[in-house]
């Protein structure tokens, strides 16, 4: 464990908690893409299959449980909570996220580190996580204005993956044989997807104006 990875995990945890907090307190999911949340629940479900088989550390198991419970809770809130569901704008959240699942799965079948079920599911979750934010970014483009909590949510998600890239660089130089090209490239693609959002997020923060994303 290094500081970049710990900071990355904490940032990731913060992003999920910010979202849960928003939905739970103001009982609204306005501006939040259900599709992105469903993709994230699928990412965690397919990545943490080894939750009960491979014990790595208490921290690892605890964090996996938190991510699983929180991501599925968010999906439940938006789909089934009698008040929250009313604020879900399904006419705007129209990204065909199923079109992301299949290519990621096929790619995982072809490009992976080991052709085993667990490894293929793990690789699938990596590819899916890289593109899971797309429905949310499309929704932000559509609804143009975004409220602070949604902006913070996306910002924290992007920041967590950027910190992980620093973690991978650190581990590459400090641990012999630590090479995971698939993880690194997938993580880089994911961070680049956030790059343009970051640009506009910082612009709005610097000029102290409401975040406007160009159409």
């Amino acid at each position: 464990m290094n500081i970049f990875r710990l900071a990355g995990d904490m940032t990731h945890l913060a992003s999920v908690l910010v979202l849960l907090l928003k939905i739970h307190t103001i009982k609204s999911c306005a501006g939040i893409s259900l599709k992105t949340q469903e993709l994230y629940a699928l990412v965690f479900a397919t990545r943490y299959l080894d939750l009960f088989t491979d014990y790595i550390s208490l921290y690892n198991t605890l964090m996996k449980l938190i991510f699983l419970v929180s991501s599925f809770s968010i999906v439940w809130y938006i789909r089934h909570h009698k008040i929250v569901r009313r604020s879900y704008d399904k006419d705007q959240d129209t990204f065909r996220h199923y079109f992301l699942v299949l290519p990621c799965f096929l790619l995982a079948l072809v490009i992976n580190e080991k052709f085993t079920v667990k490894e293929i599911m793990w690789t699938f979750s990596l590819y899916l996580e890289a593109v899971a934010i797309l429905p949310q970014l499309v929704l932000l483009q559509r609804t143009r204005n975004i409220d602070n909590l949604t902006g913070q949510y996306v910002f924290l998600l992007g920041a967590y993956r950027s910190l992980y890239i620093l973690n991978w660089i650190y581990r590459y130089f400090t641990e012999p044989h630590y090479v995971h090209w698939i993880t690194w490239i997938s993580g880089l693609v994911q961070t680049l997807l956030y790059a343009d959002f970051f640009y506009y997020y910082f612009q709005s923060w610097k000029n102290n104006v409401k975040l406007e994303l160009p159409a």
Binding site: R5, D9, H12, D50, I56, N60, M63, Y164, N167, T183
Partner: peptide
């Protein structure tokens, strides 16, 4: 004894 699973990250 199975070598530790390569993926120790979240």
């Amino acid at each position: 004894e199975e070598q530790p699973q390569g993926h120790d990250e979240l």
